[in-house]
Write a protein that binds this DNA or RNA. Structure first.
Length: 361
RNA sequence: GGGAGCGUCGCAUAGCGGCAAUUGCAACAGACUGUAAAUCUGUCGCCUCACGGCUUCGGAGGUUCGAGUCCUCCCGCUCCCA
């Protein structure tokens, strides 16, 4: 399932290979976010062309729409969204943070009141995990409580406690799956546990220790990129780096900018996801490498100083053309910029893997 | 020739006599991190970090404590009837 192919001698970085139901992926890798099943503006076919190896979808959003019944009618999420590559589904834990105003939260689970429809979604760790399994996710995330960035230790401690408790319940549920899978000969999805603990080392350690006892398929570091400066997240990573189980994939949730990804790879992180490339594209910002190494700059598509003298983005699209589309209010720029940024991120990960291979990272 | 109307800070629009003046666009600056985000924030007459000050609503006068708003004339534009 997870194989380490090479370990860096100068950092904790490693190259590996993660095998899931719908394919094998070289690590470290970046997941493009497809919250509701679609990477905004792009078709699955285009994602393939860009070499996006795996996408991330979200339990909360898929439950709200189209819902379990519809997805099952299509024989699972892959068929519904016409993507036959790997899919990781997030549990909805992040929505506990981002939709904090809309929820009721206790040890049992969370209740969201849906902003659009006025309906309600009740998530328990069991429901969240069962849903992910039912729709055919390749990698399921356990429901966690992801608190906002805070220095209030009590608050974080509570979230850690709840996350651990929920992880245990998730583990119990997984035991019940086993017989059915053994009988049918099917492949169980991978399930990852999530470390919380905010900026507090002792809480992080406790969270991780408790999680390790449950022996999930991979370990995610959550509760990061929730408003803290990245330096805080990096400190946590450094603290956790030698405590993470070496033979399991390490997933840093919600990160980030290229330099943050590089720093995290050096702390042994294998998996990333972030809205940055896709959202920034929609907001008119593109990532461009400067020269041959990992240095890059961000270009505002709309800024007039970039209006002229652009090299080709690819065969069909000059930056001047993009600039024109943006200025003309044509949404096509979003598609092109999204393609560009995702390519950039794929190139970035490729360069990182090569860097590790050649002993530079 | 007769009649009606309109000129506001790049463009377009608000504007009961108390106004540095509404809103939209554009412009400029910034933000975005397990996506309620093709979004949001700020600046946008001049000077000042700011308090504050100064000069503005086609032009010239007038009425008024006070005029973008009322009156007169002029300039420019639009429409209707001949």
């Amino acid at each position: 399932m997870f194989k380490i192919i090479k370990k860096s001698k100068i950092s904790k970085a490693r190259i590996g290979r993660l095998k899931v139901k719908h394919g094998e992926i070289d690590t470290p890798f970046f997941m493009s976010i497809a919250t509701k099943g679609a990477v905004k503006n792009l078709t699955p076919e285009e994602l393939k062309q860009i070499n996006v190896p795996i996408i991330l979808s979200n339990t909360y959003h898929l439950m709200a729409r189209p819902g379990l019944k519809t997805i099952k009618k299509f024989n699972g999420i892959h068929k519904l969204i016409k993507w036959n590559g790997p899919i990781l589904t997030d549990s909805g834990g992040y929505q506990i943070f981002s939709l904090a105003k809309l929820l009721k939260l206790n040890d049992k689970g969370v209740e969201f009141s849906l902003a659009e429809s006025g309906g309600k979604i009740f998530l328990t760790p069991e429901k969240a995990l069962e849903f992910q399994k039912e729709i055919g996710s390749d990698i399921c995330m356990v429901l966690d409580e992801c608190p906002e960035y805070t220095k209030n230790k009590k608050r974080v401690e509570q979230a850690v406690g709840r996350t651990t408790y929920w992880a245990k319940r998730s583990r119990d549920l997984m035991k019940k799956w086993k017989p059915a899978y053994q009988q049918a000969g099917g492949e169980m999805p991978l399930v990852f546990g999530i470390v919380q603990g905010g900026i507090f080392n002792d809480l992080r350690k406790k969270s991780l220790d408790d999680l390790l006892k449950l022996n999930f398929d991979g370990i995610a570091v959550g509760g990061v990129s929730v408003g803290e400066p990245f330096s805080e997240a990096h400190k946590i990573l450094k603290f956790l780096a030698d405590k993470l189980p070496e033979n399991k994939p390490h997933y840093l949730m919600g990160v980030g900018y290229p330099e943050q990804i590089i720093q995290s790879v050096k702390q042994g992180i294998d998996m990333f996801d972030c809205v940055i490339p896709t959202r920034h594209a929609r907001h008119g910002e593109m990532f461009v490498f400067k020269g041959k190494d990992l240095k890059y700059e961000k270009i505002q598509i709309g800024k007039s100083k970039y209006a002229t003298d652009f090299s080709l983005l690819d065969k069909n699209c000059s930056k001047a053309y993009l600039h024109h589309l943006y200025k003309s209010g044509e949404f096509l720029y979003q598609r092109l910029a999204t393609i560009h940024n995702l390519k950039f991120y794929m190139d970035l990960m490729q360069k990182i893997r090569e860097g590790i291979k050649k002993g530079r990272i």
